[in-house]
Each structure stands twice: as C-alpha cells, then as structure tokens.
C-alpha cells in the first residue's frame, strides 16, 4: 500500500560488520588482544633492570621460537589492521552524522581520555611504526649503531638520545590515555555493564593504564638518569 508520509521501501539490513555495533565489537576484541601483547611486552622490557644478560637471553628466547613468533605477529598485525579499519570507517561515518556542527558545544559528562581516542590512537600508531623501525628492524637508530641480538645495547643507546626518549614518553603516555578509556569501554562494547562492577572496572582501567605507562616510561627515564648504562 502507498503510504505517503512514511514510505516503507525495504532495504537490506546491514550485516554484523556493516553495523556500527559490530565494528565496535571487533574493536573491543582486537583491542583486548593488543592489550595482552602490551602486558607481555612491558613484562619483557622490565627485565632490563636485571641486567644485559637477562634481557638479551629473553630476546634470544623470543627469536628461537620462530614458528610461534610469526603466528603471533600475524595475529597482532591483523588486530592492528582491523582495529584501524573499523576506527577509520566509524570516524568517517561519525563525521557524516553531523554535517553541520554546533557553534558552541560543551562536554558535560565524558572524560578527557574518552574524547581523545581519535587522535591518541593515530599518534600511538605512528610511534609504533617508528618503534619497530628502531628496535626491531634497526633501520632508524639515531646516536649509535644497531647491533642485531644485543637488545640491551640497542635500548640503552637508543634512549640516550634525548628526543627519542621524550617521543617515547609522550607516545606511551597517550597509550595510557587510550587504555584508560579502552580498557573499560571494550566491556561496554561487547555488552557488559553493571552498576556496581563497571565503576570498579573504570577504576581498574585507570590503575592498569597508569601502571603500564609507568612501567614503560621507567626505562627511558632510567637511561636518561643514568641508572641503566
């Protein structure tokens, strides 16, 4: 029947990935996997405080399990790819959702970290690329010669360049911001929110994000301060 005022032309329903909700689930799951990596990574890094032997042995160990290393790297790359694809697509959609902006807009309820996900994400990404080129591949290694296998030397020599350390500290702090929102937000995206648990989760997200950030930046600071040589 014709319904002048509310023409119900049928359309195909968007599928899971096409829906914003589905993309957010993908972002939550990939975010969670990357979070696990971040935990593992910081735990590994902190071995630097136990001396060169320990850290280099850890590096060798990682390289010795090559058949496992690559699957892990592939999963991580996939996660990064999906996380970014979803973000970019959502960001474009969100921009289109408000073609005419407000002349004035106040935030009244949201945290700073949550509102800055869009740019904390890309900066962290840029940092990761730089970071891989510096410490994994060794293409960029200002201030000293990259020595394949001598992780301890590479780290210490790398961080002795002040701007490398500053860049690292800024990027990791932004990662902390990103995690502070992302860590509880991923639960919301997959459907978990509880009036009693979620506030705890938010606090936990804050503490975990802070600890991770401190864990990471303790290294360049220690290098710059001369605790690690």
């Amino acid at each position: 029947m014709s319904t002048a005022a509310v023409t119900p032309h049928e359309n195909r329903a968007p599928n899971f990935w096409q829906s914003t909700n589905g993309k957010k689930v993908v972002m939550a799951v990939t975010g969670a996997i990357m979070f696990l990596f971040i935990i593992g990574h910081v735990a590994g890094n902190l071995q630097i405080f136990e001396g060169p032997a320990k850290l280099n042995a850890y590096g060798h160990f990682l390289h010795s399990i090559g058949e496992l290393l690559w699957p892990v790297r592939i999963v991580l790359l996939l996660c990064v790819g999906l996380h970014i694809t979803a973000t970019v697509q959502l960001a474009m959609r969100n921009k289109a959702a408000r073609p005419v902006g407000y002349s004035r807009k106040q935030a009244i309820n949201s945290s700073y970290a949550s509102r800055t996900m869009y740019w904390s994400g890309p900066i962290v990404l840029a940092f990761i690329i730089f970071h891989l080129l510096q410490f994994t591949a060794g293409y960029i290694h200002p201030g000293s010669q990259f020595i394949e296998g001598d992780v301890y030397h590479n780290v210490v020599a790398g961080f002795q360049v002040w701007w490398v350390s500053v860049w690292y500290i800024i990027a990791v702090s932004l990662l902390g911001f990103h995690l502070r929102h992302g860590l509880w937000s991923m639960f919301q995206s997959i459907g978990y929110n509880h009036p009693r648990h979620t506030p705890l989760l938010k606090k936990a997200a804050f503490v975990i994000a802070l600890l991770i950030t401190l864990g990471y930046i303790s290294i360049p600071i220690s290098v710059l301060a001369g605790f690690i040589k």
């Binding site: 359309n11 329903a13 968007p14 096409q18 829906s19 914003t20 909700n21 993309k23 957010k24 959502l90 959609r93 969100n94 289109a96 959702a97 408000r98 935030a107 009244i108 309820n109 949201s110 945290s111 949550s114 509102r115 996900m117 929102h181 937000s185 919301q188 995206s189």
Partner: peptide, 18 residues
C-alpha cells in the same frame, strides 16, 4: 539504527549526561 545516518557509539557518556 544503522540504516539511518546516525554515528557510532564511542562509550563516552555525553548522552546520558544530557
């Protein structure tokens, strides 16, 4: 909801404040 040109939720909570 996704067929309409609404944006996505980023779980920031401005909505519930308003």
């Amino acid at each position: 909801m996704n067929t309409e040109p609404f944006g996505s939720c980023t779980n920031i909570g401005e909505c519930t404040g308003a």
